[in-house]
Design a protein around this nucleic acid. Structure first.
Length: 403
DNA sequence: TCTGGGGTCCTAGGACCC
DNA sequence: TCTGGGGTCCTAGGACCC
């Protein structure tokens, strides 16, 4: 039986949501109507464009580029900061509205949802529901969405990516040839910047070219990825809309430093702060980890990572800090460091795992619990100040050195 | 003043065991 | 003193997504 799938995608989410929020709080200008972007903090060297207004786009501003470049393209450009609390609120509003249409709904990202309406149409037409959702979001939430309509997730997602904003598009199987195959292969979901040149070298320029390429050839060339590419190009995707929220498979935090750092004690302090953040989140999910991973990015953007198995699965801050310090000591070779990250892998539910008597350090667990409660009550920064202070010191050091 | 931060999945090579 | 495979786990790195 053919499935009835919708993909709902917020148009220009970060910029729209910021605009809606600012208007609601008395700001006179709708930043969607001026040359504007949502961007990171240039002082902290996280200054990239996360979203751009249509006018900014006309000036050639692209997502992901340094704000510095964007300003050169458009000197009137206004830059507004990211605010994830606001984004989460609007994301939740959208999810609530969409949940009225089906129980089988998947939150694919902060600004995208898949809906499986196969058993929830009650005699209505899928396309009518798509238009209703499109209008209701605009009227009730004051931002707009594109809705893709099809029989599987891949096609619905490709459809929602057609003309924007505030549109409904279908991409049924019998429309693939007309609507999808003429598109450049880079438009296909999962074909990124490394794969495009490889395909071009094989003479594959459009999605249609890829669809008509011999599948076995692609498998020989690209392995499993080849299968997926070919399937997607042919509109094949059996994956289900997954309504239940699954436990994360890894949890990590990373920071770009305001200035490159070579002092291992400074690096270590930041690693400790990141470990506190990561283990706090781990416990919030009631998970324990088996593997710790430390990542360093050098000033010339080379990434290194080393990992280590914990002696016992744990969510203890202390254990994760100790292991991270060991990893850091092993891997760090004195190069100037731009970014530091800590992540935990191989997670398991705390409730299901028989805790080893050796790892069950009750005293440490109690300490973590008390600190977690304080963090929950007074906010994360009430406790984790060491790392923040360190980052501030790096900023100060940078200022002192001048330019 | 040049380049975020959160993830998932895959691969290739090596260690180790039978 | 010449040499097998199959399986699992671990590691480092790299692709992709939003």
């Amino acid at each position: 039986m053919e499935r009835k799938i919708l993909h709902v995608d917020v148009n220009n989410a970060f910029l729209s949501w910021t605009a809606v929020y600012m208007l609601k709080n008395g700001y006179k200008t709708d930043i969607r109507t001026i040359p504007s972007i949502i961007g990171g903090d240039e002082e902290r060297r996280s200054g990239i464009v996360l979203a751009k207004s249509p006018i900014a786009k006309k000036f050639g501003v692209v997502t992901g580029e340094p704000i510095y470049f964007a300003r050169k393209k458009c000197n009137k450009l206004e830059v507004f900061p990211v605010n994830f609390e606001v984004f989460n609120k609007y994301s939740n509003d959208l999810f609530m509205l969409l949940s009225q249409y089906t129980d089988k709904i998947e939150r694919f990202s902060i600004d995208e949802c898949f809906l499986d309406l196969t058993h929830f149409l009650n005699g209505r037409k899928l396309i009518d529901v798509a238009y209703e959702i499109n209008k209701r979001v605009e009227n009730e939430l004051n931002f707009t969405v594109n809705v893709g309509v099809s029989s599987n997730k891949l096609l619905a997602k490709m459809a929602s990516d057609f003309e924007k904003p505030n549109k409904v598009h279908t991409l049924y199987e019998d429309e693939i040839e007309d609507k999808m195959w003429p598109l450049p292969v880079s438009d296909l979901f999962m074909i990124g910047r490394k794969t495009v040149p490889k395909l071009y070298n094989l003479g594959i320029k459009t999605i249609g070219d890829l669809a008509k390429t011999d599948k076995d050839f692609l498998v020989k060339r690209f392995g499993k990825f080849g299968i997926m590419m070919w399937d997607y190009a042919n509109g094949i995707d059996e994956s289900e809309v997954r309504e239940k929220i699954e436990d994360p498979k890894s949890i990590g935090n990373s920071v770009t430093l305001p200035a490159d750092v070579t002092n291992i004690e400074q690096i270590e302090k930041i690693v400790v702060a990141l470990c506190e953040q990561v283990s706090f989140r781990l416990r919030k999910h009631r998970l324990i980890a088996k593997t710790v991973n430390v990542q360093l990015r050098t000033k010339d953007f080379k990434d290194y990572s080393h990992q280590k198995q914990l002696k016992f699965e744990t969510s203890s801050t202390k254990e994760i800090i100790e292991t991270s310090k060991e990893i850091l000591a092993e891997m760090y070779n004195g190069e100037p460091i731009r970014l530091i990250g800590v992540r935990v892998d191989n997670l398991e539910s705390k409730d299901e795992v028989q805790l080893s008597i050796f790892s069950n350090n009750e005293k440490q667990d109690k300490i973590d619990k008390v600190l977690d409660n304080l963090k929950n009550k007074y906010g994360y920064n009430s406790i984790t100040r060491a790392g923040k202070l360190e980052v501030e010191n790096i900023v100060k050091g940078k200022e002192k050195r001048g330019k």
